[in-house]
Design a protein around this nucleic acid. Sequence first.
DNA 1: CGGAGTAGTGGACACCGTCCACATTAGCTC
DNA 2: GAGCTAATGTGGACGGTGTCCACTACTCCG
Lengths: 196, 196
Amino acid sequence: MRDGLVAAGLELARSGGPDAVVLREATRIVGVVPNAAYRHFADRDELLAVVCAAAIGELADRMAEGVASVPGAYGDPVAAGERLRAIGTAYFAFAHDEPGLFATAFALPQQHAYGTPDEAAGTDRTPLGRLRAALDELVDADVLDPQRRPGLEYPIWSTVHGMAVLSGQGPLRELTDVDRRQLEERTLMMIGETLR
Amino acid sequence: MRDGLVAAGLELARSGGPDAVVLREATRIVGVVPNAAYRHFADRDELLAVVCAAAIGELADRMAEGVASVPGAYGDPVAAGERLRAIGTAYFAFAHDEPGLFATAFALPQQHAYGTPDEAAGTDRTPLGRLRAALDELVDADVLDPQRRPGLEYPIWSTVHGMAVLSGQGPLRELTDVDRRQLEERTLMMIGETLR
DNA sequence: CGGAGTAGTGGACACCGTCCACATTAGCTC
DNA sequence: GAGCTAATGTGGACGGTGTCCACTACTCCG
């Protein structure tokens, strides 16, 4: 039932963004009275937080898919570059064809869902973790100077995120598809240049 | 009275973001009954749109101030670079010490308030217009290759905007001030590099 | 001077988040 | 197996919000 509420909330978020995930509507979908939700969530905000985390997870999955679809062994210079690029395109694609979920993913600043500074054991499944892995591979592949590596994920993330926001829900959202793609392309090129 | 509502809405937006600009509260501040607002605005959305435009204007003003504070004649290479830089720092500063207004400025995608692709007569007072002017000066100062100029404002805007969002209301918002400044600095450096 | 349009009022409705008291049901203990 | 306990869902209510309708007062102009 808790899962049902989250699923309903996620569907609401998909078509309508964070504001559309309204508690009563979610319970209506599940077929239960509004107050029942309060047995599982303290707040509407708590429900939204879980939905938000799910949206972040979906974004991370898309990024992982994109990375996985690039052939080439780990450490291969060109493959490593293409994997970083795949992360960017996955980010853009997610923002474009799931605008509601994308907006929801960044609606709440629940710090540790995107990636933690301390890399614990195992691969970090968060979006930021994926980006970090790609950059680390670029260092291992001798494409990126190790001295430039620390903290580089943040400007890169910013660049991609900014373009996704502006061309997604933002003021650039009424661009034609080809214009948008060209801008995204240019953004990725710009990132590629900063690595050298 | 219309102006009063807008001013009230702007104050609400300043402390609480777009969701805080609630029609009834604005009328309460002005000292009038809720329905009176419907004589001046069709919707709460229409009120918010005007407030949003005002927030954009305030951002543009900050950028203009930053640019104006840089000494040096038009076309001077180093001054031109510093003016572009001033735009970026003004953007960051606005996002940081007016988070509510910053969020409000981008809450609605009312396309033409940021800047229009067709540059009509006179200086464009929008944020995008300011950025364009700075880039144009860099071309005139022979710092930026004219061939790279067209459309360059968008990736640059994205980069700055992304950092502002992520470090402002976004997931990076609990950084210390020095960490944040360092990231912003690095972002601006990255932009400076792409010009060459 | 009187009619017309305009700005503000009063009341109402539907929707939302949330709180309280209650019913039902499951599980565990004696 | 009986009875207490904790969990889960229900019903009703309250305050807040956006919005609509009918109504009033005031101002301005012919």
